Computed example of a mutant assay.
Amino acid sequence: MADHLENLDPISSYAALGDSFTEGLNDPNPDGSFAGWADRLAGMLAQGRPEGTFRYANLAVRGRLLDQVVAEQVPQVRLARPDLVTFCAGGNDILRPGSDPDEVAERFEQAVLQLRECTRTVLICTGFDTKNVPVLRHLRGKIATYNVHLRAIADRNDCAVADLWSLRALQGRPAWSEDRLHLSSEGHQRVALLAARALGLPTLDDPAAPWPAESVHTPAEQRRENLQWARDYLIPWVGRRLRGESSGDHVEAKRPELLPL
């Protein structure tokens, strides 16, 4: 991967594209809205700049599939032409039964080619390692295959990469909210630090720092916790997909224009 440090100084505008991961679900602001790793990264990039000189847009919407991200969000970026774009999409496609990570990756690269025409730097994220997540652990092979494609796409198109798969801190329970599908505030902060480092931005905190020791559950306690999680979160999530519904229905982007941060 190319060294993106040389591109850091001129960055005065940033647009984030994607789904719930980039929208920032389960990282609440005091006003009830969501922050998330992309908002946190924007804050890091804006530090030290004169007030009002750094502009930021977050176009991500929960539940969006790759083609929806490309159709709804990429054209806005092509018009705005920010210095930096983070493009994290395809995860919802990979989770769907019958999806082909090879085919999803082909569509992802076509979108990357469009973005490279209108921005100086594109950063993409690999998928999470789901080996410790009930049910989703069975999709680990598909996610790994998709990640291999993403790294190759980044190499071919000179993109920065935030490697979520290799960040072991994200395998710890403190990184995840109660639904185990979205990051906690602490998890979003780790991803923001990882993305900053992928761009060459120095950070005082280490995204890979170990978590404080967690309490150890007995196998019986773990089974009860998994059953409760399945009732509260997994079954409703599966039900929405069977009905063709999305958590993002009737949801709009929280920050649709490049505005001063």
Score class of each variant (00 low, 15 high):
Glu106Arg: 14
Asn226Val: 13
Val135Glu: 00
Leu139Tyr: 05
Arg197Met: 07
Phe34Asn: 15
Ala60Thr: 06
Leu193Thr: 14
Glu51Trp: 04
Asp129Arg: 06
Asp19Arg: 01
Trp237Thr: 08
Ala169Cys: 08
Asp163Phe: 08
Pro260Tyr: 08
Arg156Gly: 01
Leu193Arg: 11
Ala196Lys: 02
Tyr146Cys: 14
Cys125Gly: 07
Ala71Gln: 11
Ala15Ile: 01
Leu259Phe: 05
Leu258Val: 04
Asp205Tyr: 08
Ala60Ile: 04
Ala198Tyr: 00
Val61Met: 13
Leu242Val: 12
Val216Tyr: 13
Thr86Val: 05
Val135Thr: 02
Arg107Tyr: 11
Gly63Ile: 11
Gly43Trp: 02
Pro75His: 04
Leu259Thr: 14
Asp67Ser: 10
Asp3Tyr: 00
Glu178Trp: 02
Glu103Asn: 12
Ala175Gln: 12
Ala38Trp: 10
Arg49Ala: 07
Cys125Met: 14
Leu183Thr: 01
Ile235Leu: 11
Leu167Val: 11
Gly187Asn: 04
Thr53Met: 02
Ala208Thr: 12
Asn58Thr: 13
Leu194Phe: 00
Pro50Met: 05
Pro212Cys: 09
Ile124Gln: 02
Leu183Trp: 00
Glu225Thr: 14
Glu186Lys: 08
Leu259Arg: 15
Ala209Tyr: 06
Gln189Tyr: 07
Ala213Val: 02
Thr145Gly: 13
Gln222Asp: 14
Val69His: 09
Thr22Asn: 08
Gln76Thr: 02
Gly36Asp: 11
Arg151Trp: 00
Thr145Met: 07
Cys118Tyr: 14
Glu109His: 10
Leu41Asp: 03
His217Glu: 11
Thr119Gln: 05
Ala111Pro: 14
Leu25His: 01
Gln189Thr: 08
Ser185Val: 03
Glu178Lys: 09
Ile124Arg: 01
Leu164Pro: 07
Asp163Cys: 04
Ala192Tyr: 02
Gly91Phe: 04
Pro210Ser: 14
Leu204Ile: 15
Thr203Glu: 09
Leu258Ala: 13
Ile235Lys: 08
Leu193Ala: 09
Ala169His: 11
Gly98Arg: 13
Gln76Gly: 03
Arg55His: 12
Phe108Gly: 00
Pro97Thr: 05
Val133Leu: 07
Val135Ser: 01
Gln73Arg: 06
Asp19Met: 02
Arg120Asn: 04
Asp19Val: 09
Ile143Cys: 13
Ala46Ile: 01
Gln228Asn: 11
Gln114Leu: 09
Phe128Ser: 06
Ala195Val: 00
Pro82Val: 02
Asp163Asn: 10
Val69Asp: 12
Asp102Gly: 08
Ala162Pro: 08
Arg96Ile: 06
Glu257Asp: 10
Leu258Met: 13
Ile153His: 14
Arg62Lys: 15
Val251Asp: 10
Ala169Asn: 09
Arg116Lys: 15
Arg156Glu: 01
Ala60Cys: 05
Met1Glu: 06
Ala42Lys: 08
His250Phe: 10
Glu109Tyr: 13
Thr203Ile: 14
Ala152Tyr: 00
Glu178Arg: 07
Val85Pro: 03
Ser177Arg: 03
Ala15Asn: 04
Glu214Lys: 07
Val135Arg: 01
Arg55Leu: 10
Val191Leu: 04
Asn157Tyr: 10
Asp67Cys: 06
Arg137Gly: 01
Phe34Tyr: 15
Tyr56Val: 03
Ser12Leu: 15
Ser13Arg: 12
Arg137Val: 02
Glu221Thr: 09
Pro212Asn: 10
His182Thr: 06
Ser246Met: 04
Arg173Asp: 13
